[in-house]
Amino acid sequence: MSNTPLDPSKMSRRRQILETYRMTREVDPSIRWWLLGTFVLAAGLGMALFRFVLPANDGVFSWILSSIASFLIGLFALLIVFGRRAQKAAFARLEGQLGAAARALTLLRRGWVIDEVVGFTKQQDMVHRVVGPPGIVLVAEGNASRVRQLLISEHKKHERVVGEYPVHDVLVGNDEGQVPIKGLVKHVRKLGRQVKPADVTEIRQRLRALDAQRPKAPIPRGPVPTSMKGMRGNLRGR
């Protein structure tokens, strides 16, 4: 049997969901009970609500309509819980892995441009770059003492190139002043909207000269958790 990592982009929707469930269950064994309980509770509440609202004298039609609506409500609630717990499990799988921040940043949607490993050290500390509504966001991961110096260096380089546009620094980790991997995407989004879409284009053009002068370090890939890549299209826990 092949051990080649599965590519979610080449899977059917059904296969993506099954792989997401499998990988989530490895981290969160109670997921089945959460999903079952959510479905039963939501469907039961839906049934009670519809039986209260619909006329009692509609007979079989009323029961059929209530059953279908309750099933859909239960399924919708199940998908919401599944999405949230799958996302939580995906971050737990990434914790401590090389390149985890870059993989987490893939959950940013349209309007964000992610450049992986714009700066790195021989010890595999790295800085990634995100260009979007806040301007430039430099995201560092690795040994805190080493990567801080790398982050400072990259910040200065980017400031010289982009001039008046804002440059933000983010250090990923679990210590004080750092951002946990599970809260990285939310933290980046909360930096706000400080540049216009046209400014993003201008920033990217200015960065081309900087990028042309630096070597590229390939990020160690390994299997990207299906529950992160596949979930972006169909199971976004909101």
Rank of each mutant, 00 (worst) to 15 (best):
E19T: 11
R14N: 13
A42N: 08
T24E: 07
F52R: 05
E141T: 06
M126N: 01
N57K: 13
R85K: 15
V224R: 07
K10D: 10
Q194G: 02
A92W: 01
K182A: 14
A89Q: 00
E26C: 10
L36M: 13
V81E: 02
V113R: 14
G173K: 08
P29K: 12
K10H: 09
I114Y: 06
M231N: 08
K190V: 02
G233A: 14
M23T: 15
M1V: 13
S145I: 13
L79E: 03
A217F: 08
E141P: 03
V167F: 13
L150P: 03
M11K: 10
H187S: 12
R160K: 15
V224W: 00
L35P: 06
G142L: 06
I152G: 04
D115Q: 13
L35D: 01
P197E: 06
M11N: 03
R206N: 05
V147S: 06
V147C: 10
A56Y: 00
H168G: 06
H168A: 10
V130Y: 08
R32Y: 07
A89I: 08
I31M: 14
A101V: 04
G183I: 05
R160W: 04
W63I: 03
P166G: 04
L75N: 07
L138P: 01
L65R: 08
W34F: 13
